[in-house]
Design a protein around this nucleic acid. Structure first.
Length: 211
DNA sequence: CGGTTTTGACCCGCGC
DNA sequence: GCGCGGGTCAAAACCG
């Protein structure tokens, strides 16, 4: 059922071994997959989607990550984001263009210097159901029609507090039997082991990709 | 009543 | 600057 997968942004993929494994699974028609995702879609990957937003509810509890972020120059932007969140919290605002003062300017500098992407990968699945049970709990936060396709694309966010992992689900235009699932980010927690019914599927997927 | 989905508005980057 | 395409917000509707 799970036939094809490939990695995007492997530069930031936290598991080199897994990345190698993934590469060996690179489908021969990965070009087709990329094309399916459309060029503009692909170029979007160069921009951190969260970079435009400073959601106030974004946890400061993730500050235990700061040492990592600070030591990696590739993560300047992530650090800038955190500082924006903090400053906005202090100022009690949430606008992305309102961040005044030093921290805001710093952040812009970082932003232009280096863009940081969350690790991201996607895979194709032949499936009737759009959202595959991967053991995590997701909340839908958007749906968009993609041009030149029949089927809409759905956007999901992990429901876990302080976990900003997102996934995107769409159907292949050329072959609506195929579902493309794109994950972005890594869960800062383990999947919710709520029920045994999802166990079979979730363990399969999780072993393969993440944990 | 709390969490989730729906859905139009909004934002942003990009190309013209 | 403007329009387009894609991603996200958020209020209302929905649902258990």
């Amino acid at each position: 059922m799970l036939n094809q997968a490939f990695l995007e942004d492997q530069e930031f993929f936290p598991f080199p071994a897994a990345a190698a494994t993934m590469n060996s699974h690179l489908p021969l028609d990965s070009n087709q997959t990329l094309k399916t995702l459309s060029p503009s879609h692909h170029h979007q990957h160069h921009h951190h989607p969260l970079s435009h937003h400073s959601k106030p509810e974004l946890d400061l509890g993730a500050s235990h990550l700061l040492p990592n972020l600070q030591t990696s120059n590739a993560n300047y932007w992530a650090w800038g984001e955190v500082s924006e969140i903090i400053s906005n919290k202090i100022l009690g605002r949430r606008s992305r263009d309102d961040h005044l003062g030093v921290s805001g300017m710093k952040m812009k500098k970082f932003k232009s210097r280096r863009k940081v992407r969350e690790p991201r990968f996607c895979f194709k699945t032949m499936s009737d159901v759009d959202v595959l049970d991967d053991g995590y709990k997701w909340r839908k936060y958007g749906q968009k029609v993609v041009k030149n396709t029949q089927h809409p694309r759905s956007y999901y966010r992990c429901t876990q507090d302080s976990c900003r992992v997102k996934k995107r689900v769409e159907r292949l235009a050329e072959d609506p039997r195929m579902v493309i699932t794109t994950y972005e980010g890594r869960h800062a927690h383990s999947p919710s082991q709520n029920e045994e019914d999802s166990e079979a599927n979730s363990s399969k997927l999780c072993n393969f990709f993440w944990l």
